[in-house]
Amino acid sequence: MNKSKHGLYFLLTICLTIVIFLIFAPSYNLVNFINALFYVFLLLLVITLFIYTKKGGFFDGVTFGFRRFLSMMSNDYMEEWKEKPAPSEKVNPSFYKIMQFQTITTFVLLGLLLIIYYYI
């Protein structure tokens, strides 16, 4: 993934933050913009941490157990459930990199805005 795409996605993140700010802010000031940016950052953080957990194979054992259980309970003794890929094999590495970059840059921007707010 090249840097221009990362910049484009970061610009979309900022635009989403501005839209949330304009729609939901009771008054237009720096505090409410920081709050809107925090909501976007929190959503990005949750998505990134979920992808990281999924990529690490945490859900593979649970998925395997459920597939085996459903195969046994449905009297379907076909072994095709063993051939399905595990959740950790379905993670798109480029999407994870994009989400990771978005989360880190949004966190840095949030930190900078908080420093500006507390020192002005």
Rank of each mutant, 00 (worst) to 15 (best):
L45W: 14
F64T: 10
D60E: 05
F64L: 13
G65L: 13
G56D: 09
E83I: 08
A86C: 07
S88N: 04
F69N: 00
F58M: 06
V31L: 12
F64D: 06
S88I: 01
L44E: 12
L44C: 08
I47D: 07
V40M: 05
F59G: 09
E89R: 03
Y39R: 12
R67N: 00
V46N: 06
E80F: 04
Y39W: 13
N29R: 04
G65E: 08
E80M: 04
L30A: 12
L37F: 09
F69R: 01
M73N: 03
F64M: 12
V46Y: 11
V40E: 05
P87D: 02
S88T: 01
F38L: 15
F33N: 05
K90Q: 07
S71Q: 01
S88P: 02
P85A: 01
T48S: 10
L30D: 13
I47L: 13
F58H: 07
M72K: 06
A36T: 09
L43H: 09
S71C: 04
F33S: 03
V46A: 15
E83M: 08
P85Y: 00
F64W: 11
G65H: 10
V46M: 11
V40L: 07
E80N: 04
S71R: 00
Y77F: 11
P87R: 00
L45V: 14
L45M: 11
K82L: 06
F33K: 04
T48H: 11
F69H: 02
F38E: 13
P85K: 00
Y28N: 06
E89F: 02
K55F: 07
G61S: 06
F38T: 15
P87A: 04
S27I: 06
G65F: 11
Y28D: 03
F64C: 08
F41W: 14
P87C: 03
Y39N: 10
M73P: 00
M78Q: 13
I34Q: 01
D60V: 03
N75C: 07
T63K: 05
K84R: 08
T48M: 11
L37T: 05
Y28L: 12
Y52L: 15
F66V: 14
F38G: 14
V46H: 03
T48F: 09
F64N: 10
N35H: 14
K55W: 04
G56I: 03
K54M: 15
L43Q: 08
L37R: 08
F69Y: 04
D76N: 10
M78L: 11
G57M: 03
Y52E: 12
N29P: 02
N29M: 02
T48D: 07
L37H: 07
E79I: 13
V40P: 02
I51N: 07
F50E: 11
Y28R: 08
S71L: 05
G57H: 02
V46E: 10
S74R: 01
G65K: 10
D60H: 01
